[in-house]
Simulated assay, not measured.
Amino acid sequence: MLVPRQVDPPETPAKTRVLFTLVFLGSGGIERSVCNVLAGLNPGRFATKMFFHHRPHPKSQQDRIPQHTEVVWGTDAFVYHRKMLPRFFWRLIQEARQADVIVAGQEGRAALLACLAGKLLGKPVVGMIHFDWGAFSREQPRRQLWGLRLLYPRMRRIVACGHDSAKAFQALVPVRPEQLEVIPNFVDGDKVRVAGEAPLPDWAVPIYQKPVVIAVGRLENQKAFDVLIRSHSLLRASGLDHHLLILGEGSLQAELEALVKSLGVESSVFMPGFTPNPHALMRRAAAFALSSRFEGLPMVLLEALALGCPVVSTDCPSGPAELLEHGRHGVMVPMEDPKALADALGRIMDDEAYRQDLSQRAHRRSEELSADRALRAWESLLSTV
């Protein structure tokens, strides 16, 4: 009598263990872009972990990190001090031992420690580039540029957030062409639009009794909110009654508030700081303004397009021209030109048909920017690196 041979079930392929590193979980575009990648990776193929140098702040919206991603950190402190560096690094080494791939989620200290850990452990490191470093390096200490040139050529792969950012990076850092890959930033448009349907917070209801120009970003020189405030003052002087709402925190808060006061527009400019759900405010705005001096591939602009916000953006190095296709899907104006910015915003608020047309163009562009394509590229890279 023949006995049937036992056939072992096929083994389930082991998941690729990926450790993403960030300094902390802030509210900026870098953190949002990393969280979007984490949320989109197939949990059946990838075991993901997020390492922060600092404990996430209670206000940091940890719910943006998907539940299937484990979160660990190097210290319980919220504020960085150089004496903490060995502690961060030792904790990172412990976590990196268990990983197949280390992803430096941002430039600077996160990239430095990730690169050192990868070298010591023999693990491949993938670096992420979020800025146009040709412009950004002019605002940074020289050691930042030296760090780029020292660290990134030693990484296995480098992912730039856009084609313009990749070109600027290649002009500064000697990396091999096969090391550098462009995987554009992306957003989950459906999720952004659901958040946009939430009611306005109580404090914002009086602000929206008039047309609102909205801007979102860190209160730093890069974002050029000083130019935007000057354009708002010009519009108010021309007789266009409206409000300017700037969402974000940063080192220039007091300086920008002083500028508002000097221009006499205290009653029409609002800077409430961090806002948990900016999308509800963006969706109801008459126009979204991006006044930056440089960018990478700005997440907030992708979110504005998904919400159908009529967009006015400066034609700054890297990002906006790539996303808006040089003005096909929004209005582009020169940098450092409050009058041009005021004229573009004024036309949107004055002309309902024009505003609706820009809103429809924004929606169409958002549909063209596929998250699926970017996630397939990420999964392919992490599987083969």
Rank of each mutant, 00 (worst) to 15 (best):
E336P: 07
L228S: 07
E352M: 06
V159T: 04
H326Y: 12
S291Q: 01
A224R: 14
F20E: 06
R45V: 07
E178S: 11
A14V: 03
N36Q: 14
L290E: 08
R218D: 12
L228C: 04
L228T: 02
S233R: 05
P58E: 09
R376D: 13
N42T: 05
H232N: 03
F288Q: 00
R143P: 00
L219A: 12
L180M: 13
H53W: 05
H326W: 04
V175G: 06
L245Y: 03
F89Y: 15
Q98E: 13
A224F: 00
V212G: 09
L121I: 10
L180D: 03
T69H: 07
L200I: 12
V72H: 06
L41G: 02
G319Y: 04
L252Q: 15
A110R: 11
P86W: 00
S238G: 03
C161A: 12
M282Y: 03
K261S: 15
W73Y: 15
G108V: 09
L307I: 07
G273Q: 03
P124R: 07
G108W: 11
L323Y: 03
G248D: 05
V300Y: 06
H130K: 03
F51A: 01
P320A: 06
T314L: 01
D190G: 11
G308M: 04
D315S: 10
V194K: 10
R87W: 04
L358I: 04
N221E: 14
I65F: 06
V227G: 00
A111V: 04
Q61K: 11
P201N: 09
D188I: 02
H329L: 06
A117R: 09
R87V: 10
D343H: 06
L85R: 08
G264Q: 07
F225A: 06
V213I: 15
Q253L: 15
D357A: 12
V260C: 14
V126R: 13
S251W: 01
F225Q: 02
R91W: 00
F131N: 15
L252G: 05
A353P: 03
Q360C: 07
L85E: 10
E295H: 05
P13C: 02
D350T: 13
R364M: 09
Q144I: 09
A258S: 15
G239Q: 05
G122K: 10
P124G: 12
G327F: 04
E352T: 11
R87E: 12
P86S: 01
D63S: 15
D351S: 08
F52C: 14
L256K: 06
R156N: 14
I102S: 08
E181S: 10
L369N: 08
K167P: 01
Q170N: 10
G108F: 10
Y152D: 07
Q222K: 08
I93C: 10
L19M: 10
V265C: 14
D372L: 05
